[in-house]
Design a protein around this nucleic acid. Structure first.
Lengths: 301, 301
DNA sequence: CGTCTCCATAACCTGGCCGCATGGACGTGG
DNA sequence: CCACGTCCATGCGGCCAGGTTATGGAGACG
């Protein structure tokens, strides 16, 4: 009988939580989806795995039998994947569009010197995933920005801090200023990405610096082009890392340094059970970016 | 990283065959599908598993690493499934729409006596699967008809033979006859099911009794209703088991016994590694149908 | 008895998988 | 040397599985 291993992870999570809703939340899927998937698994097995009640889900006898055997299977599969990848001497690295940027190249070449014969496979993550593929274990290591959802459960090493600036339409009243204080911007609508939640949301909307001022959402955008378009069109503003202007400069958008918000930290993060190649990669990240941490200031004036 | 276990079986088959086309045939999928699935697996792993050439596929180093680790994972999963099912004391039994028919009930009750507390979960197979779920390992045991594709690789026990008859539109010239010889029907078009191939096709089209006479296909039907409809509509005829009239009698269709074709055998078949419950079930099948084998004739006149 | 929590269901939408038909690369035999 | 056969890759259209939102029903609890 064939199943997606994802379904097995679902099952394990439900068994562990004893609660569909909580498991759904932990797995970043909706509760009805879990319901359906679980029913599917049960019907394929021809066996009821949980007894449902209004207080939660408890394993049946058959469910216990399965719950005991699924984790070794998953562990075996994960090990097979890890070892296959290390045999190929390929290190997959996830990265956010604007995480390490110019440092990335240096890191990759440094890693190439440290482990000759290895290849680095850079995978850009979609905007919707601040973990850059780490959460889904698509990559064992990633370059990303702190804080991100679930950062407690991974290895994390901060590489450098970068102040933030604000992207304004060039017609904005504050567009000509050399710098602005965040309090001046608290009432402007903001442009956001679809999956802005948790600490990630809090950070990029600077919720803690708003003193309770309501956030007005000017637009929700899926891709960088739309994002910049929405700002240029005057639908709102957005906080971005200070390096953004280097990569996304447009005549109709002005980037102004912002004071009064915490800087954004660029970090390398890795899966808990990562191998030696990952450790080496982390070491390269630290080495290559060392100059940044000492050399430049991490806050605007 | 998550994959469907089916994909792992695909990979194992390709590695074993060293040839996409042959593996595709063995797995009952098209070759392009395998190509795409394999590419998908490779891209998820970020690793090339085979080197392609015009002579076939050979494993890379990484491919070898994976090929060594996949079979234990699959074995572990299959064992988990087996044990979960046996814990629940549920025996799943596949059956063809018209395989054992009236004997089925007796078999199930006999099994219930032999293993109190167990439940039998009867699963009717679609027409397209003459193995009744055995080939896909959806069930560990099935009631079906011989011969079926791949019957060498399963345990098989013939239960009884049943002569065949022909389904004719009531307006057919031979419809009034008490019986017909198959040679009289060789030039009539036939109604077939979609996935009629291999020995299964040979049996139900009676290819060996045609002496090279071409088969004309009158219609291809998906469901029993269409099937009977096509015959009633005069689009062709079809060989069916002698018990069919008991379950599908219609005023516009006449069933006439046919001589000159081999009888159809009803059998119970099981997976090679099935457990004790399956053995008991097989025993019940044999016991319950014993009278048939001695009591009635297995050929018309 | 209202309310809250938790699971099931319905309706809908999208992306992936499958099959068919076809293309391109390579080896092979006349 | 060319024609052909074999084998894998690709493009296209149809379909199903899985996801999401919105809503319903069943218990627990104050």
């Amino acid at each position: 009988m064939d199943v997606d291993t994802r379904l097995l992870r679902y099952f394990a999570a439900i068994a562990e939580e004893g609660n569909l809703t909580r498991a759904a939340h932990r797995l970043f899927v909706s509760q009805p989806s879990l319901t359906k998937q679980l029913k599917h698994l049960e019907s394929q097995l021809g066996v009821r795995l949980f007894t449902r009640s209004s207080t939660g889900m408890t394993l049946t006898e058959a469910g216990h039998a399965l719950a005991a055997r699924v984790p070794p299977v998953l562990a075996g599969w994960d090990a097979a994947v890890r070892e296959t990848r290390s045999t190929a001497r390929v290190l997959r690295v996830g990265f956010l569009a604007s995480a390490a940027n110019d440092a990335t190249q240096g890191i990759v070449t440094a890693f190439g010197r440290l482990r000759p014969g290895w290849r680095v496979d850079l995978r850009q993550a979609p905007w919707s995933d601040p973990t850059a593929g780490l959460a889904a274990a698509e990559v064992p290591v990633a370059l990303l920005r702190l804080p991100f959802p679930g950062h407690e459960s991974f290895g994390v090493r901060t590489l450098f801090s970068e102040p933030r600036c604000v992207a304004l339409p060039s017609a904005h009243p504050l567009a000509g200023r050399p710098s602005v204080d965040f309090r001046e911007l608290r009432d402007d609508p903001v442009i956001v990405a679809p999956a802005l939640e948790g600490t990630w949301r809090e950070h990029w909307l600077a919720l803690s610096e708003r003193d309770g001022h309501e956030v007005r959402v000017g637009a929700v955008t899926e891709h960088p082009d739309e994002f910049l378009g929405a700002i240029a069109g005057g639908h709102g503003i957005a906080l971005v890392p200070a390096s953004t202007p280097h990569f996304h400069s447009r005549p109709d958008i002005v980037y102004v340094p912002v004071t009064g918000v915490s800087p954004s930290e660029v970090a390398v993060a890795w899966l808990p059970d990562a191998g030696e190649a990952v450790c080496d990669f982390v070491r390269c990240c630290v080495d290559v970016t060392r100059s940044r941490r000492t050399g430049c200031d991490t806050r605007w004036g």
